[in-house]
Amino acid sequence: MSLQKQFTVWMVVLGVFILCLFLFRSVLLPFIAGMALAYLLDPVADGFERLGMNRMFATISVLMLFVLIFFFLLVLIVPTLAHQMNGFAENLPGYIASLQELIVKSSSDHLPKFLSDFDPTDLQNSIKDLVGEGASWIGKLIQSLWNGGQALIDMLALIVITPVVAFYLLYDWDRMVEKIDGWLPRDHQYTVRRLARDIDNSVSGFVRGQIMVGLILGVFYALSLSLLGLNFGLLIGLVAGLLSFVPYAGATLGLLVSTGVAIVQFWPDPVPIGLAFGIFVIGQFVEGNILQPRLVGERVGLHPVWLMFALLAFGSLFGFVGMLIAVPAAAAVGVIVRHGLQQYLHSPLYNGRSGGLIVGAPDDDTSDA
């Protein structure tokens, strides 16, 4: 089969796969979540096997441990988070109004003389419009994710189906990998295996490492803000840690929200306001210099801009399901593009007919002369 026919076949397969994702996106969430859970827990199950357990007992032990930890955290944290979320939603208009008043007052007191004719109400209206547009955009994004992930409505199906799917996939993981390996085209099996290994290293290095980074940062932010006495500190800290999965999003949002709440709550005392600001500065320093290099590393090959684009694009197309598959899809595309670029740099299309010698370059004798 010629290269052109092979490319056509694989493009058709990719198109059919994307079409199936789009058509069945409303029912895929429990299955995608179960697959992601099995992928994350497979190294733990392999570790239990190395301790002498058989695969069945290792799978049951890993899933039971995960379910116990999940429900333990659910019972401990979710009621408090729900209470703080309701309180934050009720107090948000008051916080925004207070911040507007402080900004307008400060600007009117400290404006230069040549701006004495400036009307503070214009600034207040601008802030109100900006906040309104931001809230509208966030609301549309949440609504899009909700509409695109209709399986979220049926939480019972998610809770019941996901562990079952994860169990079967985790139990048969190694056999499935071996089976799929047997389907590879024999002429390209080594190349496909290398690409699959690179994709797996990229996804596992980022996802598993970033989950640990998010948990550590979430706990640090939540405890620090709660000890500071900041209103809704637990909610703000945990959400900031969770959103750290998206580069710079968690820290930026947490910094803005916590500083805004601190200004309204503690004004005019600068110490707690500075501490709320400093907590996120310390968190970003620890993340960038300690957590990211040690837990995620630099070999994942996922540029922050490319990752943010993939999350937004897949989220808008497939809802919450799209956000689950955005990272592996972004990693796969990145690995394939790098492979294609490497092939191009070693091809006659790049090197020319000379097979590596740049056409038109002077030889050694001419350059010496």
Rank of each mutant, 00 (worst) to 15 (best):
V300Q: 14
V16C: 01
Q342T: 09
S367F: 00
I263Q: 03
S26V: 01
V177D: 00
F309D: 01
V27W: 00
L349Y: 04
Q343S: 11
P30W: 04
L76R: 09
L169V: 10
V219R: 07
G132C: 08
V62Y: 02
I77T: 15
L99D: 07
Y171H: 08
P293A: 10
Q343I: 12
N231H: 10
A369S: 02
M155L: 10
D109R: 14
F70I: 08
Y168K: 13
D365E: 05
S116V: 10
G278V: 14
L243N: 04
A240S: 15
P270H: 06
W267D: 03
S258T: 05
Q100T: 14
F48S: 03
A369N: 03
G139M: 09
V261C: 09
P79Y: 12
L3W: 10
A313P: 06
P293H: 09
G334N: 11
V78E: 13
R299V: 02
F220S: 12
P293T: 10
V335N: 00
A326Q: 01
M308D: 01
L145R: 06
G87K: 12
E49T: 12
L40K: 07
L235R: 02
G134R: 04
L243E: 01
L256S: 13
F314H: 09
I236V: 07
L215S: 12
H83W: 08
T259K: 11
P120I: 03
Y248I: 09
L184F: 09
L21C: 07
Q100P: 03
K179S: 07
I290Q: 01
L14M: 11
D129N: 01
L223H: 00
L357S: 04
N231R: 14
S108D: 15
G132M: 07
S367T: 00
V104C: 00
S244V: 12
H83F: 10
A36W: 06
G334Q: 07
G52P: 00
I142P: 05
L295R: 12
L349R: 11
F31H: 06
L291M: 03
G205C: 11
I273T: 06
I199K: 05
D269V: 11
F22L: 15
V203P: 02
L63S: 02
N125L: 14
L130G: 04
T259G: 08
F71N: 03
W10A: 09
G149F: 00
V207I: 08
P163G: 04
M64I: 02
L63A: 05
W267H: 14
V257L: 08
R353D: 02
F277L: 15
P328R: 11
G241K: 06
I216T: 10
D129T: 06
L73Q: 07
S244W: 02
F314W: 13
G209H: 00
V44T: 12
F314M: 15
V75D: 01
H110Q: 12
P93F: 09
F22V: 13
F31V: 11
P293M: 10
H110V: 12
I159D: 03
L302A: 04
A276W: 03
T121A: 13
L81M: 14
L152T: 09
